[in-house]
Each structure stands twice: as structure tokens, then as C-alpha cells.
Simulated scan of single mutants.
Amino acid sequence: MFRRLSFSLIQSRGIKHQVNIKWVRPEYVPAYKAERSGDLEALPNIPTSALGQYYALSEEMKNASEAVKKLFSVAHLGKKEYNQLVKTHMISKVKRHQYDENTAETRIARLTGHIRCLQDTMEKFPKNVKAKQTVQELIDKRKKLLKFLRQYDYKKFEWLLEKLNLEYKGHPETYHKLSRKESLRKLTEMHCDDIKNKKLADYRNLLESQQGPFLRKKLEALNFIRNEQIELQLPITVTEQDIKKVEQQLEEWTIKDEIKQQAKKKKRNVLIETE
């Protein structure tokens, strides 16, 4: 009640935020997308005329006619046989020997083939809830296996990522929920930092522009003091090294100032040409 009353009083007085900062919610990226799953390539280039996995092993299919081969091709057998070929292709990249089916790398390769097939399905049918749940479960399972392999055999882990063209994106240690209030706070801090840095840069430029006249006056004063001390035969407190040091600083400032003036002229000319 008190909050509502104070808020209404503030509104009635006309107090508004002086900083105009607009917060835009980041675009939602589904879990099956490559940005979150870590798959850097799509499905392998397997032709639709390829025979099914088990039909290709048949001796009769080698001498069969084109019509028969077409009947037993992936295009005719359907998506399930094509997905099986994709998994076999991914496993063949990493398997140790002919009968390797259950090592960590082959299991990851099999999951990767299945995930990429489901990703292709989700791109065509984004409202397929069952495929969405399945691909999320498979991605989480693959992350666990990759974490295990990374912990116990890092060299093979890197080799596997290179072979399968993957990017490891492990689970975050802490879950952080995105909120508008916190984002606005960070944006306000960034805005204040920009204002502070801009003011510091302007003040730095002002001091650098005043450095040249100050060094000239300092050089004149040092020469005057040294000449007076020599004429009056007083102890000399200003040495030639001090004067040379100031002269060198003045020369460096002059060179920097000329470079800045040339840059400003070029920028002005570019703006005039664009107008």
C-alpha cells in the first residue's frame, strides 16, 4: 500500500527518469540450434540414391538392375534409413576398429548423427514437440559424455571435436535468470561509464591543448632566471639540462599537435564530401 502511494505521489509531481535507456529482451535461441548445441555443420552429403545400410551388404544388389536399386535406395526407403546412414557415417570417422560400437567416442558420434538428423527435422517442422524434447535430451546426454572424455582424456576430446566439427558448450555452473531490472541497472552503469570516460577524454584533450603554451612560458621563465643569475653572479639553480628537457617536451608536443590538426582537417573534409 505504501509503495503504491509513494509511486502515485512521484507520478503526480512529474518526476521522471532523466536517463533514456531502452532495454530490449535478447532474442530466444532454441536449444536445438547450432548456437546452443555446438554443432558447426549440418548433415553430411549422403546422396538419396545410396542403398540402405543392410541392403548395400547384399551380393545380389551389386548385379541388380537400376530399377531394383532405386527401390532399395534411401529416397524410397524413407527418413529412418537415411538417419541410419548418417549415424554410420559419423561413427566411421572416429571408431577405433571394425567392431567398435560402445566406446565414448563412438557413442558421441552416434548421438551427434541423431542430433543433426533431428535438427534438420526441427528446421522443417519447428512445432514438432516430440522431436524438440528428444533432441534436447540427446544434447544433454552428449554433453555429459563430452565432459567425461574431457576429464579423462583431453587429447582425444580435442581430436573428437575436430573430427565431428563440434564446439563444446558445457552446462553452466550456476543458473542465472535474465531480468529486466538487472539488465537496466547494467545498462545504466554502462551509460554512466561512457559519460565519465567522455568527460575525462575532453578534460585530457583540454589539458593537452594547454600544454604547449605552458611549456613556452616555462621555457621563457627558465631562460630569464638563468640569464639573471649569470649577470648578477648568483648561484645558478637552472641548468642547461633543464632547459633542454623543456625544449624536447615542447618539440614532442608540437609534433603531436600537428598530427591532431591534420586528422581533424581530414575528418572535416570527409564530412563535407559526404554532405
Rank of each mutant, 00 (worst) to 15 (best):
K265S: 06
K260E: 14
I243Y: 07
D242K: 14
E240G: 12
T239Y: 02
T239M: 00
Q241Y: 05
K244D: 07
D242H: 08
W253K: 05
Q261M: 07
E231N: 09
I272D: 01
K264E: 13
Q261S: 06
K264S: 10
K265M: 11
I272P: 00
D242L: 08
P235W: 05
E251H: 12
R268L: 15
T239G: 02
V246E: 03
K245A: 08
A263S: 05
Q233F: 11
E258K: 08
Q233A: 08
D242S: 14
W253M: 02
K260L: 12
L271N: 00
K244A: 07
I243F: 10
E258L: 08
L234M: 05
T254F: 06
K256T: 11
K265E: 10
E247P: 01
K244H: 07
L234W: 04
K260M: 10
T254N: 04
I236F: 03
Q248C: 01
E252R: 10
Q262W: 13
L232M: 02
V270S: 03
E252L: 12
K245E: 15
K265V: 15
A263Y: 04
V270A: 05
K245W: 08
E251W: 09
N269Q: 08
N269R: 03
E240P: 04
L250T: 01
K245Y: 11
E252F: 10
L271R: 02
Q248Y: 09
K267R: 04
P235M: 01
V270D: 01
R268M: 15
K267I: 10
V238P: 01
L234I: 03
E231V: 13
K260Q: 15
I255M: 04
T254C: 02
K260C: 09
I259D: 05
T239C: 00
E258I: 13
D257K: 12
T239L: 00
I259M: 07
I255E: 09
P235T: 09
T254Q: 06
L271S: 01
K244W: 05
K267E: 05
K256N: 10
I259E: 08
L234T: 01
T237Y: 13
T254A: 08
